[in-house]
Design a binder for these strands. Sequence first.
DNA 1: TGGCGCAAGTATAACGTTATTCTTTCACAA
DNA 2: TTGTGAAAGAATAACGTTATACTTGCGCCA
Lengths: 352, 352
Amino acid sequence: MMTRARKGDRPPTIIDVAREASVGVMTVSRVLNHHPSVKASTRAKVMSAIARVGYVQNDAARMLKGRRSRTIALIVPDLTDFFASCFHAVQEVAMRHDYQTMVVATGRSAALESQQLEAIANHQVAGLILVPSGEDTPRLQHLLDRDIPVVALDRPLAGLNIDAVLVDNREGAETGVRHLIDHGHTRIACVGFEGSSYTARERFEGYKQAMRSAGLRPLVFNQVNTLADMEALIQRWAHAKERPTAVFSVKRLASIRLVQALHRQKLRVPQDIAVVGFDDFELAEELGTPLTVVAQSATEIARAAAEQLFQQITSAPHAEQPARQAVKMIFPTHLIVRRSCGCAGEEAGAVS
Amino acid sequence: MMTRARKGDRPPTIIDVAREASVGVMTVSRVLNHHPSVKASTRAKVMSAIARVGYVQNDAARMLKGRRSRTIALIVPDLTDFFASCFHAVQEVAMRHDYQTMVVATGRSAALESQQLEAIANHQVAGLILVPSGEDTPRLQHLLDRDIPVVALDRPLAGLNIDAVLVDNREGAETGVRHLIDHGHTRIACVGFEGSSYTARERFEGYKQAMRSAGLRPLVFNQVNTLADMEALIQRWAHAKERPTAVFSVKRLASIRLVQALHRQKLRVPQDIAVVGFDDFELAEELGTPLTVVAQSATEIARAAAEQLFQQITSAPHAEQPARQAVKMIFPTHLIVRRSCGCAGEEAGAVS
DNA sequence: TGGCGCAAGTATAACGTTATTCTTTCACAA
DNA sequence: TTGTGAAAGAATAACGTTATACTTGCGCCA
């Protein structure tokens, strides 16, 4: 196998394969593109010739003819923790299909996202998995017009008929907060909501819903971005008449800052204040008091998104079925009860 | 600007630009490829036309003609923490040069690395930044033969004349261990060395060197991969006559496991045992006792690697200078003194 | 045996860019 | 005026693949 180097030292072309198999060039092309009108015996002859000369399709030439390259793109805000796991899952699926993965981190800049979308479109990628930061509908529409499959991950794309794979943020948050309520807490604060991010907003809604349906008043504290902010907030609570007995944090960074701040202010978790956070992280178990969290599986949703993308990619050739309805997949979260919520939980996994 | 859509709805080609600027096709091509024989006024005319019609070069066609695509590849073992930071730095540099970044995570599988190297080569990437897992010299040589610039990151490539950007692991480890020695420790254990990874090996050597030059006997414990292993090890120490008073951990995961294990065994840090780890991480400050670490800057080395790569890429056209000697850049580490080493680190924070 | 249809061959023209080889134009000095 | 050389146009041929429009062979049924 892989004899390589026929003439000169250029990689072998489809012509070399045709000669080797004693067939026409078009027959080889037909085999490569899975045309139905090729006899099995001929296909076998061609495949063996391909293996013998070590032929690989030239993506550049295919792209020039308007075909897609064997590359999918993944656009994420960054590659920390959650999205790094997403990437690994996506790449694993892509490799199984013999595709490359091109990653772009937009740094949460909508402008950069637009610009990169443009570059991606030019790149003739076979498909795109997008964690939307901004909402550049026209630019995305441009991709859709070109029939490039797109799947939204983690956040939906409003107004466009695009497949989406999401986490049930609202329900997850509700479960987390209800867990605190069930343990007798009535003054439960919510931190980390900035209004900017879809996921944070959803979780915030879940929090409010849980509070309201228990007849409790929501206590919302936003604009706590730095550790100093968080410490100041906690100090304010210390002098308040009715200070919160529990806190729900809507995102990982807020959870971390919260834990740090409580630690510095010498407040014990959960005795002085109970904590439940959204999103699990490495070391959540080792922080002074192991943290109870609402966990979501990056691997799970990313894999689902990738599978969905490849389903679109491989079914695309049919063409002209009249505008398929977009699929929405919503994955549940899991409450991981550790010690910060006050109950003696070791590792019980309750589902939403 | 970006008027788009000249004829049909295809993206504009070099021909459209030529027509718009009232010049010949070749003149446009010459402008795009920075040929010296173009008058400044003509260049300006062409550039303005390019902007007006919203032209972008078609990578596929350029690649077909043997030119490289505007994409660089980054091959890493995974995208957790350190390498995620590397990616961000690399991408930032790439974007400044108007290049895309293609990432491949090999999962530390040498076979996968080889396979992906092959795909990369076929992809006509403009350059490659590689964190080598295996040492697939023939496959790499294949890239080098094609004059594709390659820079090794974090680990060197033995036997090949390839630029490398590294961290001074040995010196860093030595500094960390010497810090413990300077504080009076004599029985300092070393954990986390598995023999497989270059960086761990180097740090291990640094540890040994520090111990030897202080006249101390190295205490090495490898094969402690899981938390259970680590706990067992610590229990063994508890019953030993001469138990270590300090531990040096050669890698992040080992540091974390170590801290967890000590915590579970109710050993106080640094009173019962002092700890210094190689590699900083988010939350190192919040773990029961803030951890003293030897820190390396992923951003710094990755940016340097990317800059070096683009220097190669942009200087390549000169051609045929007789085998440039490879550059090796070695970056220093920084000792971040917190509280786990026993001396009064700057950071305030209560012990668990 | 004539016609029908399927598998598969040939030939040719794209796709957008660059390289090559000629011309042409134009300014400027001899 | 004529020669010189630089700037730039025009024409054409690649690069490897695919699409189109044929043609050719072959077996099969009427």
